[in-house]
Computed example of a mutant assay.
Amino acid sequence: MNKKLLILLLSSLYSTTPLLAAEVAKPKAADEVVLAADSPQLANLKIEAVTQIPAPASSPFNGKIVFNENFTARISSPVVGRALRINAEIGDTVKSGQVLMTMDSPDLGSAIADARKAQAELQLKKQAYERSRMLLDGGVIPHKELEASKADLDEAAAESSRASARLNNLGASRNTNESYSVRAPLAGIIVDRQVNPGSEVRPDAATPIFIITDPLHLWASIDLPERDLGKVNPGQSVSVEVDAYPGEAFSGKILSIGAMIDPVTRRIPIRCSVDSKGGRLKPEMYARITPLSPGNRQVIRIPNSALITEGLYSYVFVETSPGHIKKRRVTLDVQGKDFATVKQGLSNNEKLVTSGAILLNSELAAGK
């Protein structure tokens, strides 16, 4: 009886061994984290597909967005006066020739009076010349008196022309009063105003009373350190990033490199064109400007939050399949303040853990 019982026990043991082997999960790799679909750890991870960008030629340089002077007007009054009415506010869109401000100007009154006086003097000299010519034809006066009359006429004509040119320069005529209108010389947006009703306005004021610019045309400016001068060239493409739009790059191109280095700061000014994408960029924004490598070479850009540094090497976590996240070594190209570019170790459109990599690395370390 005991022998039969022993046989039954042994047969039961051997029959269940394949089942137990099938139920045991295949051990995971040492550099892999496996998470179930309902794992709460997944909520702490941010997984995104990586994308390629043009390869940078150097680390980003600090710069800022500035006015494009070819599409900017700094307006001052050519005459002394007092502001009566302001017709434009900061942020207003104006057209070329639109009245921005009306002012009362004694200087304009003097210019109008001079023009009227010069015109009246010209008419008088014309009559005198015609009379002298008639008298010369009748033999009443000598020829030299006609010449003197002609000289007076020419002098009056010159004075009248000068006075008229002065009025034309002011945008006025002899029939206007002392009310002077300051007009916009080009279309754009009012970005600054330094005048209020009742303010005194002078041509020699330290600041312009209005600044108008076209927001679709801007420059990006770099004060380049002397040691980096060899990294940039006219016509080189650049990538411009600002804090207002994290992760977004604006394309541009180097227009000019300064002719000399500032002897105090040892920096040289670089001016770049930039596509503001419909006016999204604003003058005086701080920017990070990255010169790009020629030849349209592409690299993969990842946020620094996705990187794990261990000794001399850098690692990232890549989702190879749903719930399976593998640690992988990468070779960096350039690392900046917020982003780095990868030379080797990643392919385009691979899914990368961009937030939570430190937690995964701790999970791997705890499992060793």
Score class of each variant (00 low, 15 high):
S39P: 06
E159D: 13
G247Q: 07
G311A: 06
I90T: 15
Q52G: 11
T331H: 07
A163S: 09
L124S: 13
P294Q: 05
D114I: 00
V334N: 07
T207A: 14
G323W: 00
Q236I: 01
L218E: 01
N70E: 14
K28I: 13
P215D: 08
G247K: 06
M101S: 06
P263T: 03
L135P: 01
I190R: 00
L42H: 03
S321W: 02
V274F: 10
G230E: 08
Q236T: 01
N233D: 13
R174A: 08
L229W: 08
R202Q: 11
K3D: 13
P197V: 13
A249H: 05
G345V: 13
A88N: 04
E145V: 02
G279W: 09
I75P: 00
T320F: 03
A113I: 07
T207K: 14
L45Q: 03
R82G: 02
K117D: 15
L19K: 08
E69V: 10
V318L: 04
D243R: 08
N2G: 15
P208K: 02
Q98S: 12
S273H: 06
N175F: 09
G295S: 07
V80M: 09
D275H: 05
L364S: 03
L216T: 14
P303N: 01
A37P: 00
S314P: 04
N169R: 14
V242L: 02
M1S: 14
S181W: 05
R297P: 00
D92P: 08
D214K: 10
L10H: 05
S239V: 04
I212K: 02
E284R: 11
N296E: 15
P142K: 09
L122T: 05
R267P: 02
R301Q: 11
P18G: 01
L360F: 06
M101P: 05
L153A: 07
S179R: 08
S149H: 01
V334F: 10
N44Y: 13
L8K: 02
P246V: 05
R116E: 00
P197H: 05
R328G: 07
P56T: 06
R266N: 05
E32V: 14
K26L: 15
L255D: 12
T213P: 04
I47D: 04
V182R: 00
K277H: 09
V274S: 07
Q123A: 15
G109T: 07
M260Y: 11
S105Q: 04
D38W: 01
G279K: 06
T213L: 12
K282I: 15
A306T: 06
S355A: 10
V318Y: 03
R328C: 09
V353A: 01
T72F: 05
I302C: 00
P303H: 03
K46A: 13
T331S: 09
P291M: 04
T320H: 08
P106R: 11
A148T: 11
M1L: 10
V33T: 06
L170K: 00
G247D: 03
A115Y: 00
V79Y: 04
L10A: 15
A88K: 05
R162W: 05
